[in-house]
Amino acid sequence: MSSTNMMATFRLKQDYIKLKQNPIPNILAEPNPADILEWFFVLIGPKDTPYEGGMYLGKLIFPSEFPFKPPSIYMITPTGRFETDTPLCLSVSDFHPETWNPAWTLSSVLIGLLSFLLESTVGSVDMSDEKRRKLVVESFKFNLNNSNFCQLFPELVQVAQDELDSREAHQVGHTASDLEEDDELEPYSPLIGVLPHICFVVGLLALPFMLKYVWK
């Protein structure tokens, strides 16, 4: 192992200890057990935001020169904010090495990323808040089918499944209520469809009597 790689490993282990001692609200992160330079993280949408409750999986790739060079940052779960599976252009990523500060830690990078997620002026995907809220539900489905999410964040797996079941049940209940309201507002009668035909037949039957009356 090179000296730079040893330094990166030592620093990331220290950052991991600090992260466990001082957890960041709405953020979880775990290293790849086979490669400490590769990390996976989950951003949990803060309350009172379009992302509220959503779970967004992402990945950090640290260079062997870390902390003197910044990591690459990728989003895996669609957020409606950033492109997925492509390096993000952020001041805390390797897209802008000139803005990188070696004093920044793993926690600094993740906090900065969450801030960028919530800012309305940053990001390459332009979506409405309503569409982002729909992606909250989709995030649960997406993550439950992702092996890294299930293996590294088992404490979130059941939470994601419960949230998915709850929101889908709420949606089904809401749809059923709408249908009931429509039925109340517009009651249906089977006579409505055949009424024109009845009128036509009655008119034909009455026609001879009308002609007889007119002839007289």
Rank of each mutant, 00 (worst) to 15 (best):
residue 139 S to M: 11
residue 105 T to Y: 07
residue 119 E to C: 10
residue 94 D to I: 10
residue 106 L to Y: 06
residue 113 L to G: 04
residue 129 D to W: 12
residue 86 T to Q: 13
residue 88 L to P: 00
residue 110 L to V: 10
residue 78 P to N: 05
residue 124 S to P: 12
residue 99 T to R: 13
residue 102 P to Y: 04
residue 95 F to T: 08
residue 103 A to E: 13
residue 108 S to L: 06
residue 132 R to P: 05
residue 115 S to N: 07
residue 99 T to S: 15
residue 122 V to L: 05
residue 130 E to I: 14
residue 81 R to D: 05
residue 85 D to N: 13
residue 115 S to V: 04
residue 94 D to Q: 15
residue 130 E to D: 10
residue 130 E to R: 08
residue 116 F to W: 00
residue 118 L to S: 00
residue 128 S to F: 11
residue 125 V to H: 06
residue 125 V to T: 10
residue 115 S to D: 11
residue 115 S to H: 03
residue 128 S to T: 14
residue 111 I to C: 14
residue 92 V to C: 12
residue 129 D to L: 12
residue 77 T to Y: 06
residue 101 N to A: 15
residue 104 W to H: 08
residue 98 E to R: 13
residue 76 I to L: 15
residue 93 S to W: 00
residue 117 L to Q: 00
residue 106 L to W: 06
residue 138 E to T: 03
residue 93 S to T: 04
residue 107 S to R: 10
residue 118 L to K: 03
residue 117 L to D: 01
residue 92 V to P: 01
residue 107 S to L: 10
residue 100 W to P: 01
residue 84 T to H: 09
residue 77 T to W: 10
residue 85 D to L: 15
residue 122 V to C: 11
residue 135 L to W: 02
residue 111 I to N: 06
residue 124 S to F: 12
residue 135 L to D: 01
residue 81 R to L: 09
residue 89 C to N: 08
residue 128 S to I: 07
residue 82 F to R: 00
residue 116 F to Y: 03
residue 85 D to G: 15
residue 93 S to L: 04
residue 132 R to S: 05
residue 130 E to H: 11
residue 118 L to E: 01
residue 115 S to M: 08
residue 111 I to E: 09
residue 109 V to I: 11
residue 84 T to C: 14
residue 136 V to F: 04
residue 133 R to K: 11
residue 122 V to I: 14
residue 83 E to D: 15
residue 132 R to N: 02
residue 133 R to Y: 09
residue 76 I to D: 04
residue 136 V to W: 03
residue 81 R to T: 05
residue 97 P to Y: 02
residue 124 S to H: 11
residue 101 N to C: 13
residue 76 I to V: 13
residue 81 R to F: 07
residue 135 L to H: 02
residue 122 V to Q: 07
residue 111 I to M: 13
residue 94 D to K: 12
residue 112 G to H: 04
residue 85 D to S: 15
residue 98 E to K: 14
residue 97 P to A: 07
residue 118 L to D: 00
residue 110 L to Q: 04
residue 93 S to F: 01
residue 127 M to E: 06
residue 86 T to L: 13
residue 90 L to Q: 02
residue 76 I to N: 08
residue 119 E to V: 08
residue 103 A to R: 12
residue 116 F to N: 07
residue 101 N to M: 12
residue 96 H to E: 13
residue 103 A to V: 15
residue 94 D to C: 15
residue 134 K to V: 02
residue 116 F to A: 02
residue 131 K to T: 05
residue 114 L to Q: 14
